[in-house]
């Protein structure tokens, strides 16, 4: 029996954001935008969805008078990511 893939994570851009954040402590929004090649608008929407799901924490502050947004993955996000990877592995095992 296959586990349902988490719909929040099973989206290319949201999965890319989570994969970037999983290995670091925190990253600036501009860094994520650069690495994912996403547009700022689309990325904002997807980060908001991850935030609403409780998978990432978004901090907005000012640095040298410019707005600065940083994102970090939450413990709930780590659990969801691990469960997603485990589900993928199960799919691939059966597919072999």
């Amino acid at each position: 029996m296959f586990k349902e893939l988490d719909p929040i994570l099973h989206s290319q851009l949201r999965l890319a954001v989570m994969s970037l954040l999983i290995g670091v402590k925190e990253a600036e929004f501009t860094f994520i935008k650069e690495k994912t090649n996403a547009t700022a608008g689309n990325l904002s929407v997807q980060v908001q969805k991850l935030k609403d799901a409780g998978y990432v924490e978004v901090t907005k502050q000012f640095k040298d008078n410019y707005p600065l947004t940083t994102c970090k993955v939450t413990p709930k996000g780590i659990d969801a990511f691990e469960a997603y990877v485990k589900a993928l592995q199960d799919y691939l095992k059966v597919g072999k």
């Binding site: 989206s11 290319q12 670091v24």
Partner: peptide, 25 residues
């Protein structure tokens, strides 16, 4: 990057691997 849900497990794993490497390397 597209916001597309239509991708298979192999593509998912490849995406995860490439993004982790982008931050790690």
């Amino acid at each position: 990057m597209e916001n597309d849900n239509d991708f298979n497990p192999q593509q998912s794993l490849a995406l995860i691997e490439s993004m982790i490497n982008k931050a790690k390397d």
